[in-house]
């Protein structure tokens, strides 16, 4: 780890100034990803601005809006009564990620900003556009079993990135249309989660649209009609404590066995949490049934592009969505 200076700002304004005005300063909160990256010399800040004591931990519910402070711990969110009663999808997704210890450290803001887990990004012996622009993407012609199948069509792959966003929490936030509230040198702004994370394009080094020194203050969720029928299905190489091969966050608004509206978002398939608006459309207005779900899930991979080792995701994905929808609807799947 490179030497750095450790600083504790007094308040949000001071914190934002310290990072926005410094050449190479970083916020640190839970540290579960940043310390990891610093140990591998992937992040080499000169200054670490510790924001853990700033008053951004509250989880509040007022007039139909849940506001989760950026420094709220993942475990606090997953255990929160209102989250569990009104936004159970979020609690389920958070619980599917990492481990009890990591959820006790990681913050909501940090989770939104965690970097990909692509092996090529983490080992400086490999080229990686995300780590260093224009060095090439080793994953494109390499081992890409875990890599993206969506959001790639416009990319020049030589300069881009096929890594996926690793978060579980963000998949649920995408399904629930979260708003990210930030404070930066230009003041406060509200960013819909769909706009918050970027597709890699020719700047795969940038995961989000945050500007230098811009700090996440909170995440807001509007009350919705989806809390009765939700499921988060995470497919991975072991039963727990592993990143998703693919994951699906699904939520259904069901009235008398008819789907009024649906939300479907995926993890492990793109540079950002991936909403499937076409699948949602295919579900809306239909009766809940295995047939409805199967037909809708089939739409999911229409735009997919695969590489040498991840072609199986085309086959797996509709099955995962189907399984998740069946679960959300409380249907017993019948096979064969």
């Amino acid at each position: 780890m490179r030497p750095f200076q450790y600083i504790r700002p007094k308040n949000v304004k001071e914190a934002v100034d310290m990072v926005s005005l410094e050449e190479n300063a970083r916020f640190i909160a839970g540290g579960t990803n940043l310390v990891d990256l610093m140990k591998r010399n992937i992040e080499t800040p000169d200054k670490l601005v510790d924001i853990t004591h700033l008053p951004l931990k509250k989880i509040e519910y007022h007039s139909g809006t849940l506001r989760i402070g950026a420094l709220a711990l993942n475990s606090d969110v997953a255990e929160h009564a209102i989250v569990n009663s009104r936004f159970p999808l979020l609690a389920k997704a958070i619980d599917a990620g990492a481990s009890g210890q990591l959820r006790n450290m990681a913050t909501v803001g940090g989770n939104l900003l965690q970097r990909t887990r692509c092996a090529y990004f983490y080992d400086t012996a490999f080229p990686c556009n995300k780590r260093q622009l224009e060095t090439g993407c080793a994953a494109v012609g390499g081992i890409n079993r875990m890599h993206a199948i969506f959001g790639l069509e416009k990319n020049d792959l030589e300069k881009s990135c096929i890594a996926v966003h690793p978060s579980d929490m963000c998949v649920a936030l995408a399904a629930l249309d979260a708003i990210i509230i930030t404070f930066g040198p230009k003041g406060e702004r509200k960013i819909p989660i769909q706009d918050f994370h970027r597709l890699p394009g020719n700047r795969p080094d940038l995961d989000s649209i945050l500007e230098k020194g811009e700090l996440i203050l909170a995440v807001e969720l509007k009350s919705n009609t989806f809390q009765q029928h939700t499921h988060y299905l995470k497919i991975r190489d072991r039963a727990a404590y592993a990143f998703a091969i693919v994951s699906a966050a699904v939520a259904l608004d069901v009235q008398q066995d008819q789907i009024r509206a649906a939300r479907v978002a995926l993890g492990g398939v793109a540079h950002k949490p991936w909403r499937l608006f076409d699948v949602e459309k295919a579900l809306a207005g239909k009766p809940i049934s295995q047939n409805t779900f199967r037909n809708a899930a089939a739409v999911s991979v229409a735009d997919a592009k695969t590489f040498e080792h991840n072609a199986f995701k085309i086959k797996l994905l509709p099955n995962v969505i189907l399984e998740a929808l069946m679960n959300a609807a409380g249907l017993e799947p019948s096979y064969d």
Binding site: A138, A240, Y241
Partner: peptide
Amino acid sequence: RYGRYITSDLASYHIPVHAD
């Protein structure tokens, strides 16, 4: 192409966990 492991940590070289 590099003769180098891409599974060189315990997050990518999976060994069983409790839940398995």
